[in-house]
């Protein structure tokens, strides 16, 4: 008798319970999915940023030092091919406040920020006066030096960089010469020969680097390639 009267109540109770269970499982599944998606997104952003600023990257001069022009010429396809970007992900790469690359939507994406240096090499020329000695010390370090040697009343037979002979001609050097120098020490260039060198006989062109710091931000949104 009791069982019969409470049958509708039992039915309602069952419906309630099943509804709640379904709701609980849905919430749990969503939470897990969101958490996994975020982790994967972050891992993707970390990997792309790492590859972009690594020493092997095409956008860098050496590790963490970016070449701005090379970074600008990157395309999403290149990021996929060489820097491990997921083809379906939306991506944005920013250098400082400038967006250098963008594909799809990244509004809800995950961002990784890296500290980088941007290197610019500019050309400088000095004309040694040779008033005190036959040597000239470059004020800044440089990977190469271009010498233009046109002495009027003297000959230059030997050119030394930090004591090491880099150019030598017993009958006299004349013309333009490219000399490699060390990036790690200050270069002192010595000229030896006969006669007395005067101002204008030699012009020294070098390429000092100027670096400034910036931030590289890589934002990735999973499945964002199609959107906006």
């Amino acid at each position: 008798m009791r069982a019969q009267t409470s049958l509708p109540a039992l039915g309602i109770a069952l419906v309630l319970l099943v509804t709640t269970s379904v709701f609980a499982v849905t919430v749990a599944a969503e939470q897990l999915e969101a958490s996994r998606s975020e982790t994967l997104e972050r891992a993707g952003a970390v990997a792309v940023a790492d590859a972009l600023i690594g020493a092997d990257s095409e956008a860098t001069v050496r590790a963490n030092v970016l070449d701005r022009a090379a970074l600008r010429s990157l395309s999403p396809a290149a990021l996929e091919a060489r820097y491990g970007l997921d083809p379906r992900a939306g991506v944005r790469v920013q250098l400082g406040t400038e967006t250098v690359l963008r594909r799809g939507s990244v509004g809800a994406g995950t961002t990784i920020e890296r500290i980088v240096l941007i290197e610019n090499r500019s050309r400088r020329t000095i004309v040694p006066t040779f008033r005190q000695s036959g040597q000239v010390t470059l004020p800044r370090r440089t990977p190469t030096v271009t010498l233009r040697v046109r002495p009027d009343n003297a000959t230059v037979e030997t050119v030394r960089v930090n004591g090491r002979i880099v150019l030598d001609n017993p009958t006299g050097l004349r013309g333009r010469f490219e000399v490699s120098t060390s990036r790690f020490e200050t270069a002192t260039i010595g000229f030896a020969g006969s006669g007395r060198l005067s101002s204008g006989d030699v012009r020294v062109t070098y390429w000092p680097a100027r670096t400034r710091k910036s931030r590289l931000r890589v934002t990735i949104q999973r499945g964002g390639a199609a959107g906006g």
């Binding site: 039992l10 709640t20 269970s21 609980a24 749990a28």
Partner: peptide, 21 residues
């Protein structure tokens, strides 16, 4: 009776849900 039992069951499940959330 069944309503009370179901109520307890629903409460239990909701606790779990909140735990997940």
């Amino acid at each position: 009776m069944a309503a009370i039992e179901a109520g307890i069951g629903v409460l239990l499940l909701l606790t779990l849900t909140v735990g997940f959330a």
